[in-house]
Structures are given as C-alpha cells and as structure tokens.
Design a protein around this nucleic acid. Structure first.
Lengths: 199, 199
DNA sequence: CATTATAGTGAACGAAAGATCACTTTGTCA
DNA sequence: TGACAAAGTGATCTTTCGTTCACTATAATG
C-alpha cells in the first residue's frame, strides 16, 4: 500500500512538473490531485526536492531500461520499406505515449537548472537516438540497402530532423498527424537519397 | 531616464527567466540585480505578468526584425564554399550571442505554459530556419550548385540537425567548440551528398 | 526659482509556499 | 484479537511571495 502511494506521488509529480515545471508546482495541488492533504506527502518524501530527485532517478532508470543496454537495439531491417515502417512505428509510439511525452517536457523545462536533467536531455534528444541509428545504418550498409557511408553521420542526419518534429508534437499536439506525415515524407526522402545502387 | 530603467528591468528579467523560468523568478532578486528595492519595479510594470508580457512583446519584435521581413533573407551564395562559410558564420553568431541564447532558453522553458512562447518557439526552432534556407536552396539549385531537388525538404534536412547542435550549445556551453566542428562536418557532408554534378 | 510629475524607498499586507508535529485511523502480523 | 508500525489528517509555524501605499528624493519645466 505504501509503495503504491509513493508511486502515485511520483506519477502525479511527473504530470505537474511537465505542465508547470518544478518551481511552478506546489505540494498542495500535487497532493490534492491524489485526494490527499499536503502533509500526507511528507510521510513518503522528505521534501519537494526529494520528490524531484526520486523522479529523476526513475526517469534515468526508465531511459536505461528502454535505450541503455545493447540488447534493446532495434533489429537491422531487411528492406527499405521495413526501415520506413520501423521508423514510423517508433515515432508514432513516442509521440502518443503520455508518459514519454511528459518526460520529454520535464527535461525540456528543467535542462538548464538541473545537472542530471541536462545530461538526460542530451541523451534523449541527441546522442541516444544517434547511437541507436548508427547501429541500424551500419547494418543496412552492410546489407547494401544503403550506399556506403559514415553510419554515424547518417544517423545524425536522419534522427535530428525527426527529433525536431517530435518536439513539435510535444509543443503543439494538434499538429501531431501533420507532423507524422512530415516524418514519413522525410524518411522516404532520406531513403531515396541514400539508398544503395543494387536493387 | 525612465525608459532606461524599464529596459533594464526587461533585460534583467530575460536573464532571470532564462535561468530560473517565470515561476522560479522573484521580483526581489530581479530588482536587487538592478540595485533597486522591489517596490521600485512597480513604478514601471503593473505586475510580474506584465513584465512577462512586455518581454514577450520584445522577443516577438526582435524576431520579426531579424527574421521576419523578406529583405532580411540571406543572399544566395555563389559557391559551395561560400555556403559553408555563411552557415558557419550564422551558427557561430547564434551560439555566442548572449541575448539570443537567453531568448532560446526562455522559449524552451516556457513553451508549454505560454501560448505566445509556444508560437515563437516553433518559429525559432523549426519553421523560421526552414523558410530561410528554402529560399537559399532554391537559389542554389537554380545556380546549379546543388542537384535539382525539393528546396523545402532540403532546408528541413539541413537546418534541423544544425538546430539540434545549437540547442546542445545552449544546454552545455562547454561543448560549443566541439559542436561547431560537428556543424561544419555535417555541413560538408550535406554539401557532398547534394552538390550539383556540373563543376 | 517654484512647481510638479516621475523615480525610488521602506514598511506593511495578505496569500501561499514548504515543512513540522501531535493526533487519529488503518492495515499487518504475532 | 491485540499490538504496533505505517499512512493520513488538520492545525500551525516560518518564510517568502507579489503587491500596495504613504513617503521622500530627483530631475525636468514654465
């Protein structure tokens, strides 16, 4: 029962931090959203900052679990259509999963204030995606699906534009469908430019 | 004398908002940074929110002035080296200009809370750059510096990765030099991929 | 020089913040 | 079932917040 409440508090804090930021969130509203009175929160966390740190721990763990270990690298696709489908599936998931959206928002808001948020932001928004797709592109080049090229540069050139469209979805969710079409258009364009000569 | 103080307050608020966000900024610190006592601020602005709105007005005006009108479009370069140089000069400026850095940070932090910040963020981070470079690439294709292609897609594929490196500089300024090298490497790579056949 | 609008001060206010504490309730387990 | 630790409450404390206001100093104007 205790673990449950503690988790609920962290979930509620993720929601509030992602909407109002750390400074813009207060314990009264937070506890009220859980049908609690504010002093109750202090049975589970020593302070507001303690909640923040615990939430960051969770976000770090969540990231490591989903993207950290090599065994979670996506399989190298066997065709360019499969590659496109894989991209679309990943993007579609990431722009619709409420929890991941909130994590990105929190990192956006707090990246300049909190050292760990800064680190996670760079991973989430830049290096993580690049690493992941470096592996994919290296495999695809080997399979001659793509022209011989620097896989890391390819990965950066591919993921950064898609990432910017994901951020657009976070900012203006009503544009999500349009943005997804742009992702697809970009992906098709990218494939066309870099596809291998051998059919 | 009045105008001067009002401007100083806006400048100080830009600094504090970009570091601590709107909610994380208080009037006492703000006025103290100007050698004033907090009640003095209220001779120039009716409320904290009034300061925020005035600052946003300024940021909108600043953006429109620098990127808004068509006459501020960059000239179409006459060679690929010139294009690279133009890119590097623009990026170098934007990652070192303290004011522009602070504007980007404020937009990052407040994009999910304030409607106008959201709009400006999309312009600053996405559509503005794309529009600008669509014009450049259209001209370069006409000059046969680049292969015939969709200039808007080219612009998006070019500016988004560079934009993500600019954000990295905002987040981790100590990596600025490295990031600038990455910008140059990416730009050279991009040119190589898309350069026209005719020398 | 006298007047007057403006800029800045310092004390004060009410509201809201984070946090504490003595208490009651509740669920667990010997 | 009875005891005890944990979870939750409500009152309260201290600080800090944004804001107001009567006041003084200042600088421009006629």
């Amino acid at each position: 029962m205790a673990r449950n409440t503690k988790e609920s508090i962290l979930m509620a804090s993720l929601e509030m931090f992602s909407r109002n930021g750390y400074a813009g969130t207060n314990i009264r509203e937070l506890s009220a959203s859980l049908g609690m009175v504010k002093s109750g929160v202090y049975k589970h966390f020593a302070s507001k900052e303690d909640i923040w740190n615990a939430l960051l721990d969770k976000m770090v763990a969540y990231y490591d679990q989903r993207f950290g270990s090599p065994e979670h690298l996506p399989p190298v696709p066997d065709s360019l259509e499969e590659f496109l489908a894989m991209t679309m599936q990943m993007v579609d998931f990431t722009v619709h999963d409420e929890k991941i959206i909130m994590i990105r928002k929190v990192l956006m808001i707090e990246q300049f204030r909190d050292e760990r948020a800064k680190e996670l932001a760079t991973k989430h928004f830049l290096t993580g995606l690049t690493q992941m797709f470096t592996h994919v592109f290296a495999g695809m080049i080997e399979k001659e699906l793509l022209k011989s090229d620097d896989p890391e540069m390819l990965a950066f050139a591919y993921t950064a534009p898609i990432s910017s469209l994901i951020h657009l979805c976070d900012r203006e969710p009503e544009k999500t469908d349009e943005a997804l079409k742009q992702v697809e258009a970009f992906s098709r364009y990218f494939i066309k430019v870099h596809e291998g000569e051998a059919p």
